[in-house]
Nucleic acid binder design. Structure first.
Lengths: 160, 160
DNA sequence: AGGATTTCTGCGAAATCCGCAGCGCGATGG
DNA sequence: CCATCGCGCTGCGGATTTCGCAGAAATCCT
């Protein structure tokens, strides 16, 4: 189980329209059979299987179950905006290494970094934000947005 | 294909530890066979299958392919913080109805709403933010954070 | 306790997954 | 020019998984 996380080192692995179509199929249903996908994109079952495996290995996509953490036992979730001085990438790396960080993005705007965190409870969240994120060298300040309710969560950008 | 989107109407469908364990398995690999999951959680193959189907039907989880849109052809992606006056839920509903909105959350903090959008290019993004989101009744102002680079994207909160 | 409902189990049949050998094709280089 | 190599696709069986169903077991409600 070497590389669990996505290959976030944007290698832009050149995706042709067929692979795009395969991804679209799997965005609708991650368990759709290879044969059905093949029929939809005009490829044999084995070819689809090989392409999917490669896309997974390359980290271009992952096939997973996604949930709303708030409905599955986690009490507190938040988006945290981070102001950084110095090497943003290094700070991003450090925060991404934390288990509680689900989502880490470098952005252009008043925040240098946006981080989504999942916590057990208020104490845990306080600990993560104040003791861990703010302790990372280069973090100047943070601003938190605690989640009240998830209204939408989709992955079907391809199907429109 | 009645309800494609998650049941975001927090019905808190009471999940026992076995369903939690099943979700964990599928967070690691959305295509893991039911028999393997059953062995891991102590249930028969058929029982796992029934539970998974129910979790999907209830909208508690979805099994899908997730990608980094920036590596799959979409040029621009952003997080948009929204200040709302009046009925926040209604505004959230309206924005969630837009195809470009991938993720909509009501939050406590300086923003009432946080929205993640995926766009084809700069023009498209400008159109979505200025003409569509800001046109929703109740939206007082917005602040945008354009994505530069996705550093981490995980769904394995359960495996720690 | 009695009955209704839900959940689990244990099949057999059908469909799917998986590995492998072979073929076609473009690029490389002698 | 042609041989070779790399790479992706196809077409197979065999192993595995999925699927539907009927009965047993557990749970809930009155």
């Amino acid at each position: 189980m070497a590389s669990r996380n996505a290959d976030t080192s944007n290698g832009a692995p050149h995706l042709d329209s067929v692979s795009l179509a395969i991804i679209e199929q799997l965005q609708e249903d991650g368990r759709r059979p290879y044969a059905a996908i093949g029929k939809a994109v005009g490829l044999s079952e084995a070819a689809v299987r090989q392409r999917v495996q490669k896309l997974l290995d390359q980290g271009v996509m992952q096939i997973v179950a996604v949930t709303d953490p708030l409905t599955v036992g986690f009490r507190r979730q938040a988006m945290v905006g981070v102001h950084v001085e110095g090497d943003v990438e290094a700070v991003a790396e450090a925060i991404a290494a934390m288990d509680e960080a689900e989502y880490v993005v470098m952005t252009a705007g008043s925040f240098d970094l946006i981080v989504e965190i999942v916590c057990e409870d208020d104490d845990h969240m306080l600990e993560v934000i104040n003791r861990r994120i703010r302790a990372v060298p280069g973090v100047r300040s943070t601003e938190s947005f605690v989640y009240l309710k998830l209204k939408k969560q989709t992955y079907m950008w391809g199907t429109r």
